[in-house]
């Protein structure tokens, strides 16, 4: 079974007298250990799609399955637990907690979400900080490091809980070209080393080429699926 499966998923918002269709009957499957990108212009539905897969939102119609769980049915607390145990998130604005150091930011989900024992916690944090080359910056606060470094910390935070799936919404949008490629390369490397599935959204054509599979969205509809290295599409 695919790690992610969407069947006829639509999402619309009622705005007083008008209805805005953010997603229109989207169906897709994403297998484990893949490196997938959603691409499309602003307003095409990329973030909505990621939110639905990430159990942050619920579809208006259709069904979303993640890791075999029908996530439509999850209550608020269940959804939070599911996200904490199975998913990692990387945000466009990095979204690190400003009052915590780099080390503590990576530690946060292990304490506040998964309640991991101190020894294992420390080992994991140091391992991932080293993996993202931020070990020497571990005592700095987010305000003391660059955007690229922040996103590397965010990658470590997303991975430290050993999730099956990491969702990244425009992870390179606020980075310069070099930093953007470094972050994507880091995510790619983590996907290869840890066998974690990465799904990210982007509107940058150069970044999307780094993905194995690219889903293209336009006006809330899935218009194309491209398997990059095999050069096939449907």
């Amino acid at each position: 079974m695919a790690l992610i499966e969407l069947k006829g998923v639509s999402k619309f918002y009622d705005m007083s007298e008008t209805r805005v269709d953010a997603l229109k009957s989207v169906s897709l499957q994403i297998e484990e250990q893949s490196f997938v990108s959603f691409v499309g212009p602003s307003g095409s539905g990329k973030t909505t799609l990621l939110n639905l897969i990430g159990c942050l939102d619920k579809p208006s119609t259709g069904n979303v399955y993640v890791n075999g769980t029908h996530v439509n049915d999850l209550e608020t607390r269940e959804a939070a637990r599911f996200r904490g145990n199975h998913l990692g998130f990387i945000f466009q604005n990095f979204n690190l907690i400003p009052v915590l150091t780099v080390y503590e930011n990576v530690e946060y989900p292990l304490i506040m979400v998964q309640n991991i024992a101190p020894k294992e916690r420390r080992e994991r944090i140091l391992h991932y900080l080293e993996a993202v080359s931020m070990l020497d910056q571990k005592d700095k606060y987010p305000g003391q490091i660059s955007g690229g470094q922040k996103q590397r910390v965010a990658v470590a935070r997303a991975l430290v809980t050993n999730p099956k799936l990491v969702l990244a919404d425009e992870p390179t949008a606020n980075l310069d070209h070099t930093s953007a490629f470094k972050v994507i390369e880091l995510m790619r490397q983590m996907q290869r080393d840890l066998k974690t599935t990465f799904v990210f959204s982007t509107h940058d054509p150069k970044i999307m080429k780094e993905a194995e599979i690219v889903f293209t969205l336009e006006d809330g509809q899935m218009t194309n699926k491209e398997i990059m290295n095999l050069k096939s599409s449907n």
Partner: peptide, 16 residues
């Protein structure tokens, strides 16, 4: 608000 969204997204329970 955004920070609350972040910690909520990464799985922090409402009670926490």
């Amino acid at each position: 608000v955004s920070e609350i969204g972040t910690i909520s997204a990464i799985g922090t329970l409402p009670s926490r």
